[in-house]
């Protein structure tokens, strides 16, 4: 299968070909790839693609997968509507007793 048709990051539409191109250009950590390709920056925050990216970096650098660092984890765990946060912060949220 063509590497361009293998999607690694569904949120940001990043293909295996994109990942390999960036590795060849010298970006060999998750944090580097993320900044250039936006891989892991979408709504799922890397929950789908992280393992795949990690595996590709490991293969390229000839490392064990567990020796390839993940991207930094930041809040939030899932997407939350800003207005809902604002309501709760103002104490207007009826659902909260």
């Amino acid at each position: 299968m063509n590497k361009k048709d293998i999607i690694i990051c569904r949120c940001e539409d990043v293909s295996l070909a994109d990942i390999h191109e960036c590795l060849e250009a010298g970006y060999t950590t998750f944090e580097d790839l993320k900044r250039i390709l936006r891989v892991g920056m979408g709504p799922c925050q890397g929950q789908t693609c992280s393992h795949l990216v990690q595996a590709e970096i490991a293969k390229y650098l000839n490392l064990n997968k567990e020796d390839v660092k993940f991207q930094k984890t930041r809040p939030l765990i899932t997407g939350v509507v800003l207005e809902d946060i604002a309501k709760q912060a103002r104490g207007e949220d009826d659902d909260q007793s």
Binding site: L76, G79, V81, L82, E83, A86, A89, R90
Partner: peptide, 19 residues
């Protein structure tokens, strides 16, 4: 979230995914 819902209420309908 409070400030954006005051000034740009339409934008406050979006989901925040990372800080």
């Amino acid at each position: 979230a409070k400030t954006v819902s005051d000034i740009l209420p339409e934008v406050a309908k979006l989901r925040v995914i990372r800080t």
